[in-house]
Design a protein around this nucleic acid. Structure first.
Length: 935
RNA sequence: GGGCCCGUAGCUCAGCUGGUUAGAGCGCACGGCUGAUAACCGUGAGGUCGAUGGUUCGAAUCCAUCCGGGCCCA
């Protein structure tokens, strides 16, 4: 067989080193090094020096353990926002932070030490170990966040254990204290009488415990009206499993709307919930009893008095509350505000006293009356016996139920009121606006994204009780006040606060536990009550939410590159309760304004079924695994593709789909790159001189830029993804780029047609790489570095290259959009007809076809205006015949397909009738002959 | 139990203030191409819009209840 000329050599086939296979997990670390070398963070600030600033303030994750999908998602989102803003011309510093104090770290350190060593260690030593532990995980998480491509000041992050940070706590405390928003009070907390310590909820282990279960009658001293006529004494019956709390009883709580009845039994009339009479009777073993006909609502009994069960001559009061259940007990709840959370809350609502007769070791003091000196657990049987003797015990038994235990000693814990510090929601000094009012007002000034977020925030701030900010622990920032050793008075004023600020700025909060107050307080600091000068530093520490809350001062105010208020806080929806609120309250408390201009909230990461991820369900997806297997850009693309305003699912299938989408996007870029290997912007064809199809492509590119930019600006990131992806698939791959291949490959390399196309491809590449850069941070940079130097416009990184604009004349754009809507609709009919012809064996590839298209006049006119050759190119067929006629009702045109006339050009593979027209190239079509001859 | 929120094809999402046979892409099936090739192109099949009531001439869109799920409280 004769040698066929190798026409491939004469064509402009794609060339690129940009690999189809990403190999992200290997490639990404190289990119990180490159950014490190060029100091990308600093350059991202320098590039917009003097421009407007955008401050996204990082909420500090807890420095404990590795990152999980939720933290990864959150950080990627922040990075996306920061990078977008940078590219839009804002100076967008990003200072990552970590929350380093708190019970979980202290708890873990204590576990690691073990109980024996723990006993021998000082508070200062324990704090040093906690610090070490926290810093270790700061390093771990820092590396993990950076691996995700997050750009920020990782060399100098903010840590809540830094000295300046610690001092910031005092600045806010000082202001709020001065403004009368901070007060001392009492509140029940979990307390272990053996370890003599307060316990956090996380330090409580619940297990079944056998408790006493007793019913006790409290005799009314003011008889209910309904029972005025009965001759017997009338009492209310309560049920409790903690007899030892009876000395602290001050009230009985009834259900407001429930029916209560009197039961005549054994010479008494006992009042209880009607619904529970049978069960009380069973517990008491009553054989004969009579339910009186009178029925009263709980609310009707409210306000009546009864004899306190332990203390003679003392009365308690009947109140109503929502927590009263009618499933167990008697429907009348013994209420001791010092010994229970609900009792405490209802007690506060009714202004009840809060007696607390139990000391640190669990012994009754004088307030225990006859039981003074007894330990509460020992007292239980004694109390029961005592009640029996008094004749007030209605029934006694035992019950097995879930009860809290101390994680250290495994003993049951008690609930006990202790002295605590509070931020008042509704009280403040004269002339100062109360915090709740100010905070509600501030909420209205903030942009909440998504909109429902404001409801959640308002509801929480509107309802919340005073904020208890003290914790009885070691690892944290002390409450910066003093107590007079002589009289117990609190000593705190501007000069003591300032002294503490000065001390902590230099030595940190550790100094609090090392130095004596006299060493750093101004000489002459004395108790305002007794004049004593022997002062003791407060031992309680601040709630960690307070600590992270004051970052608006410790970070935003302290760092020159930042400012308060921030433009945005961006966290998961749980932070309505946490950081959003602690930031808001401390900021309003100190400055009367919110710390943020906007708050963006995202949902939680759940599995493919919408369930939370947990080890026990076995559905946990680790970002570290995904990075190792697929790359950080896959996580980033996934994060961007989901609607964050609700919970976000992740699963193997979802990540597979994401990877497929990634490959599609990557390949689109690869195609663009591979057809620009010989293009120089100097070859650019002006818009007006472009092929019409290319002008239309420019219009659709401009539309894409508009849509994507709007999506970013509206914080609808999943629409960024969707627009970009659909553009790649629908506009480019299946239409424009497919059509362009013939021109790019077969036209003369430097000819007008090919340069016109390349001008568009270059515009697409330059715009798209920027549009995806905030999301696909690694891939976009890889693309950037693969672009011809001249297209990079001098930017060392795509992150520094600014935001794309594509200008097309508006009138042209409108005309082209309309015309090409018709073209594309017709094209759809053509592809359907081609498919039928293909399955009938009439044609194989579309170039082998000649199509006859019948459509109404106006359609035909539009199609004809494009030009016959151009239309055939756009349909990727060899010839189009346009006929005016009736189109079917369901379609814009009727299309029939026939084999193309002429024969296949061996160079461009089109079927042409002008093969051999040029004698010099007898095999080729006219176009190819012309191109080849010119070589 | 309370507050806030979610539930549209296997997956990710559109469906504005209620109005013709609920859309897109992916995946899948089938086919084409072999000059984007561990790519690319085409066609097609997939949904009782969580369920049930209600309002309305008309509801995926409004209301109620229920079921399932999430966050935060209790």
């Amino acid at each position: 067989m004769a040698d066929k000329p190798d026409f491939k050599q004469t064509m402009n086939l794609p060339q690129t080193d940009f690999p189809m296979r990403a190999g992200l997990s290997e490639r990404e670390p190289h990119m990180l090094r490159l950014w490190d070398e060029m100091d990308i963070y600093k350059r991202s600030l320098d590039v917009n020096a003097g421009g407007p600033t955008f401050i996204l303030h990082d909420g500090p994750p807890y420095a404990n353990g590795h990152i999980h999908m939720g933290t990864a998602f959150n950080k990627v989102f922040k990075d996306l926002v920061v990078k977008y803003k940078t590219m839009r011309g804002y100076q967008a510093p990003y200072v990552p932070g970590w929350d380093c104090h708190g019970q979980p770290i202290e708890h873990q350190v204590e576990r690691n030490l073990g109980p024996e060593r723990m006993k021998t260690i000082s508070r200062t030593e324990l704090r040093a170990l906690c610090r070490e532990y926290a810093l270790e995980f700061v390093d771990v998480q820092r590396a993990e966040f950076q691996r995700l491509g997050v750009r920020g000041d990782f060399g100098d992050p903010y840590l809540t254990l830094n000295h300046e940070y610690e001092a910031g706590n005092v600045r806010i405390f000082k202001t709020m204290y001065d403004r009368g928003m901070i007060h001392k009070g009492a509140k029940p907390i979990h307390w272990c009488v053996r370890c003599k310590t307060a316990l956090a909820e996380a330090e409580i282990e619940y297990s079944d415990e056998l408790s006493d279960s007793i019913y006790v009658k409290f005799e009314f001293t003011s008889r209910p009206e309904a029972f005025a006529q009965v001759s017997e004494p009338v009492s209310v019956v309560i049920w409790t499993t903690t007899p030892w709390t009876l000395p602290a009883n001050v009230a009985v709580t009834l259900a407001e709307k429930a029916d209560y009845v009197g039961v005549r039994v054994g010479g008494d009339v006992l009042v209880m919930a009607e619904a529970l009479v049978t069960s009380v009777a069973a517990a008491a073993g009553w054989v004969g009893y009579e339910v009186l006909p009178q029925r009263v609502k709980g609310s009707e009994l409210a306000g009546l008095k009864y004899r306190q069960p332990v203390h003679d001559g003392v009365e308690g009061v009947i109140i109503t509350g929502e927590h009263v259940e009618l499933t167990t007990g008697s429907g009348a709840v013994h209420t001791a505000p010092g010994h229970g959370e609900e009792d405490y809350l209802v007690g506060r609502r009714f202004g009840l006293p809060m007696p607390m007769p139990v000391d640190d070791e669990g012994r009754f003091d004088a307030g225990g009356g006859p039981f003074a000196g007894m330990q509460v657990w020992e007292a239980n049987p004694t109390i029961i016996e005592w009640l029996r003797e008094r004749g007030t015990l209605v029934a006694a038994g035992t019950i097995s139920h879930s009860y809290p235990h101390c994680w250290r000693c495994k003993r049951p814990v008690i609930f006990r009121a202790t002295e605590q510090w509070f931020v008042s929601m509704d009280e403040a000094a004269q002339g100062v606006r109360p915090l709740r009012e100010g905070a509600m007002d501030a909420i209205g000034k903030v942009e909440w994204i998504p909109g429902w977020s404001v409801n959640r925030m308002s509801a929480m701030v509107g309802d919340r009780p005073d904020w208890c900010i003290s914790r009885q622990r070691a690892w944290g920032v002390p409450i910066p006040v003093f107590t007079c050793r002589t009289c117990g008075e609190t000593v705190a004023n501007d000069s003591t606060f300032d002294a503490v600020i000065a001390l902590w700025e230099v030595e940190g909060a550790d100094s609090w536990f090392i130095r004596e107050p006299s060493e750093y307080l101004p000489a002459g600091t004395a108790c305002p009550r007794c004049g004593g000068t022997d002062l003791k530093a407060e031992q309680d520490i601040l709630d960690v939410w307070w600590e992270s809350g004051v970052s608006h001062t410790s970070v935003l105010e302290a760092r020159p590159e930042l400012r308060r208020p921030a433009d945005m806080y961006l966290e998961g929806s749980d932070q309505h309760r946490g950081w959003f609120q602690s930031g808001l309250l401390t900021s309003v408390g100190a400055y009367d304004e919110p710390p943020f201009r906007s708050v963006l909230t995202h949902g939680f990461i759940v599995d493919g079924e919408g369930r939370k991820m947990s080890k026990s369900l076995g559905n946990v997806v680790s970002p570290i695994d995904v990075v190792a297997k697929s790359g950080a850009d896959i996580i980033r693309l996934w994060a961007c593709s989901a609607d964050y305003s609700q919970d976000v699912s992740v699963s193997g299938e979802i990540l597979d789909r994401t990877s497929e989408a990634y490959r599609r996007i990557r390949n689109t870029f690869r195609f663009l790159l591979s057809n620009l290997y010989d293009y120089d912007p100097a070859d650019a064809v002006p818009f007006d001189e472009m092929y019409e199809l290319d002008r239309y492509a420019m219009v659709s590119l401009a539309d894409l830029v508009d849509r994507v930019t709007a999506a970013y600006d509206e914080w609808r990131f999943h629409m960024v993804y969707r627009h970009l992806y659909d553009y790649c698939v629908v506009d480019l791959s299946s239409f424009y780029l497919d059509v362009l291949k013939d021109r790019l490959y077969a036209d003369e390399a430097a000819g007008h047609g090919r340069r016109s196309a390349q001008t568009v491809l270059a515009a697409m590449l330059g715009a798209m790489v920027r549009l995806v850069a905030p999301v696909l941070t690694f891939t976009s940079e890889e693309i950037w570095l693969s672009m011809p130097e001249a297209l990079r416009e001098g930017a060392a990184s795509v992150q520094l290259s600014g935001w794309p604009t594509v200008d097309v004349p508006a009138a042209d754009a409108a005309r082209l959009r309309a015309a090409y809507a018709t073209v594309l609709a017709a094209r759809e009919e053509v592809t359907k007809a081609l498919e039928l012809a293909r399955s009938a064996g009439v044609v194989g590839k579309s170039q082998e076809a000649r199509v006859v298209l019948v459509a109404p006049q106006d359609t035909i006119t539009v199609l004809r205006e494009r030009g016959g050759r151009e239309l055939a190119d756009m349909f990727i067929v060899s010839e189009v015949v346009l006929v005016v006629g009736e189109a079917p009702a369901s379609a814009p045109a009727a299309v029939t397909v026939e084999p193309a006339a002429g024969s296949k050009c061996p160079r461009c593979w089109n079927h042409r009738t002008d093969i051999g027209a040029d004698a010099a190239c007898p095999d080729l079509c006219g176009r190819c002959a012309r191109v080849v001859s010119a070589l």
